[in-house]
């Protein structure tokens, strides 16, 4: 099946705002799925609530659109009921890092065999732009009108610490790298988190001096620090520049996993 065969054309146009990064993430995911040679019969997409979680509705295969934050818990049930299924979870920063944080760390700890793709737009987009656990310090949201004062979660590092077998982070700008990272996640037995820093021009950019879509994408590109470069800076005893986030593959390992076919 080619990537185009996975699209539900009858559901277009989708609900995403002009300039939203989620479409890029879905396309990269479907391209990776095509690369894997997966078919509709053995693939299921699962999501929670939020803009990210509308994605399975636009993909032509079995999907389970569940409650807010719980996608990984539902997905664990699906995977263990039928380990032959390829399970992919679409989630967002609000879904995964806030209301679903507990399910997230336990899915990593159990290392359940699935791939979670987190569209991290650093805001609650669907409900109109409230501050989330990944809203950067100082960023304006509707619940932080003078800038967020709280520290953020580093979701990728959290997944590494909690035990996931594969963790990578890219941005919606790095489509080739993102596609390859998702493909690696799909191939890796155990839990894989692919975090995608993505733009929300409607509810993040316009409140944070990133009014144009291209401004947001450029912001993501220029604030992405390759993991190899970070490691080099650490080796050389140099400081990590402020405001940067690490991209690349953070871990690939072979801890015992749950739900892997014997």
């Amino acid at each position: 099946m080619s990537a185009a065969d996975w699209q539900r054309i009858d559901r277009l146009p989708n609900i995403y705002c002009a300039g939203c990064g989620n479409g890029s993430v879905i396309n990269c995911t479907l391209a990776a799925v095509e690369e894997m040679g997966w078919t509709r019969e053995n693939t299921v997409f699962i999501s929670g609530i939020g803009c990210s979680s509308r994605a399975p509705g636009y993909i032509l295969t079995d999907s389970l659109h569940t409650t807010h934050g719980r996608a990984l818990a539902f997905a664990t049930g699906v995977k263990l009921a039928n380990p032959a299924l390829n399970v992919v979870v679409f989630t967002g920063d609000g879904d995964l890092a806030a209301i679903g944080g507990n399910h997230f760390i336990h899915a990593c700890r159990r290392n359940v065999d699935m791939t979670a793709i987190c569209m991290n737009n650093q805001i609650y987009g669907m409900t109109g732009g409230q501050g989330s656990p990944t809203t950067p310090r100082g960023a304006i949201s509707t619940t932080t009108p003078y800038g967020s004062a709280e520290p953020v979660f580093d979701l990728a590092e959290l997944a590494v610490a909690a035990g996931a077998n594969h963790v990578a982070r890219w941005t919606s700008y790095h489509v080739k790298e993102l596609m390859a990272a998702i493909a690696t996640g799909l191939q890796t037995p155990g839990f894989s988190l692919v975090e995608v820093m993505t733009q929300c021009p409607t509810n993040y950019g316009r409140r944070n001096r990133l009014r144009q879509v291209s401004d947001m994408i450029e912001h993501l590109r220029t604030h992405a620090l390759l993991v190899q470069k970070r490691d080099r800076l650490i080796r050389e005893g140099k400081p990590i520049p402020e405001g940067m986030f690490v991209v690349g593959e953070l871990v690939r390992r072979h801890r015992p996993a749950m739900g892997v076919r014997a």
Partner: peptide, 14 residues
């Protein structure tokens, strides 16, 4: 916590 259609209330209070 944000949830439609309640969100405007707590946005205003924030």
């Amino acid at each position: 916590y944000p949830i439609t259609p309640q969100t405007h209330i707590v946005e205003a209070l924030a």
